[in-house]
Design a binder for these strands. Structure first.
Lengths: 209, 209, 209, 209
DNA sequence: AATGAATGAGTCTTCATTCAT
DNA sequence: TATGAATGAAGACTCATTCAT
């Protein structure tokens, strides 16, 4: 699925990139504070360091900013994951590592993740699929990791279970961000990682044997 | 924590209740479609079956509607859970039953749950705690169930693990609603319940015994 | 052809009529001075004696004001013509009278006529036909008068000639308004009426006989 | 009356002429479609084949474009008339010919004529007189023709009648353009010319003799 | 208690014009 | 000379809230 194009009046690609970077940075910081709807285009322009007129040289409508922001956040998460995870060996250790790193990335970018999850619903019917697609790619990443483990005989999971498990990991990672008001009072990130990993891997039934 | 009071000009308590019921019903159906921000007070009034003037006899500001809606949805979930769960015996079977019923309730009320999770962030700093508190109560319910199981020796979980596990259950239930675009294409509710229950209980490591 | 409906949020028909009267009056005076495009909705509201919010209770878009104005002007011209002309006897005298009265109406309403002719083109593709239709009705009125005269044997004109002649009368009347910068320096209204009537009726060829 | 000067920053007269030609051509085609107000300077620049910055090297404000366009259209009409009419002999035949040719020119340039008549009102108080002056010159041309005929004893018209008649011819010619939505459905250009000429010359009263 | 007309601050967006390169 | 990025004033329109009836 190709990226949705956000049209700019300005032709210089380099400049477009630079200005959009400013824009995204400014917008994220505003969306964090007040959400997409309560943020005005003027505020976005100001936070981006240029005038309202200039803002509209780089986007068509306010919603484009939101799309750009969501797009960027995903790329950011993705990039960090790839850098961190890199090769995966299909061992329990490397599985644990992957989860730990995912959770760390979420922790690093928790404001951004929050923004995305709270505002993505405001995307137009046109843009939403592109963002959801990115989400599926993230989930697919976890599926692949799990599959490798299964192939190695480390885990025993059906196809269906792999899919669901991948979703669970994805969501329980985000949970660290969107339920931080509760969780981050109870655990440090390290504790959270350890506990979740345990819970996920161990099962909670007493082993009778 | 006491309910936050939403002041009404009208004195007749009976009437206030009736009108607010109309209001909540109308508002939920609108929020489902277009979200809180894109819904106007006029639309709410119309969907409620009375005039904009009357609407403001029963609330102070638009945000009050959102609070009332969130409040109501929680009550609804709570009520259904209680009716369903009732007594809990601390056995694996009754634990499974509790989860199944929670997931069913989420499935029944998925639009409402969605509304709450997507819009709660728009609550004022004043109202938010009341809603979060309700959420904690739900989590606490799962904690209690888990605790009973632990007390019965059915599960082996530390205090910390119980808390986290309760959160997980809570979130994985909601996940059925807010990721329905993906999950409900893959599983029926029954499959989802069974798979999740399995995953939660079994652990996924091969048992090397 | 039915009138195009301009939707109002306000239900009270009486009030709608009253407010629209204020609006039309205010708008005409502004359009006279600066044209439709250079007049802002705020100015229209102010000139109408109410707030911008109230203005939009009675129209949907700025263009609606223009439509309402054009519509009204035509009705005004029409009404005055009917009152004046009433019965037409098909004699030269009554033909002359009709022309004289039409020209007088144009003179009375010359600002309005000017507005209509200069701004009608800004009407949307949706509204324009309704206004053009009214224009055709005016022309048809002249056709009827001419036809009566022809039937009475007073004039000798083919069907085609009647149509064209009616258009000519219509346009030469308006000319008094939209070329007033030239004509009204040269003639009084009375002179204009007399000269035009003469020219129209007499033909300008020397009578060789 | 001298042409109003439109100042250009560029000094090279040759270039100024060339660029303005491009500009006028581009602008006319845009004004035809959407009118002066709805056309942006960016669009004009683009249609002219150069950048917005360059556009402003050749004009001071947007309105200058309109003035240039109106000016050019008049010149065009004038030029074609002169070429066509050339010498006028003061006979009925040559009078008829003059009218026929004027109407043909209008037909050829009807879009342009329309633009001018609909947009001239948007000219500033400064520019308007120059355009109106050109209009008077056109009317004067008809006056001269009529005068010659009168001098030759072909027509019997007073000074006043000549002036008015000239205006009528001028306006009935334009009418072919600005009422084309009605007239051009009813007549071909040839029919229109013949009918109008007849009506103008013959008079419509039955000849009693 | 109920109504709905009135209000005007606030929002997105456009576009003529400038100016550094 | 030519370019096009930057500007910000200005405009159309919305909508939460009030208040007289």
């Amino acid at each position: 699925m190709k990226k949705r194009e956000v049209l700019a009046s300005v032709k210089d690609e380099r400049l477009v990139k630079k200005r959009r970077n400013q824009m995204i940075k400014g917008a994220i910081s505003l969306f964090k504070q007040k959400g997409f709807h309560r943020t005005t285009t003027r505020e976005i322009a100001k936070a981006s360091g240029f005038s309202i007129g200039t803002l509209y040289e780089y986007i068509r409508q306010k919603e484009d900013v939101l799309y750009l922001v969501c797009d960027r956040i995903y790329d950011e998460v993705h990039e960090r994951m790839e850098k961190d995870i890199g090769t995966h060996h299909g061992t329990i250790e490397s599985f644990k590592l992957a989860i730990a790193r995912y959770f760390k990335v979420i922790d690093d970018l928790q404001d951004e993740v929050l923004v995305m999850y709270q505002e993505a619903k405001s995307l137009s019917k046109e843009s939403l699929p592109y963002v959801l697609n990115k989400e599926m790619q993230m989930v697919a990443m976890f599926e692949k990791i799990l599959q490798t483990c299964v192939n190695n005989g480390v885990f025993q999971l059906t196809e269906q279970e792999i899919q669901l498990f991948a979703h669970n990991i994805f969501v329980l990672g985000q949970m660290w961000a969107f339920r931080r008001w509760a969780l981050q009072k109870m655990y440090t990130l390290e504790e959270y990682i350890e506990l979740q990993t345990d819970l996920l891997l161990r099962g909670i039934m007493e082993k009778r044997s």
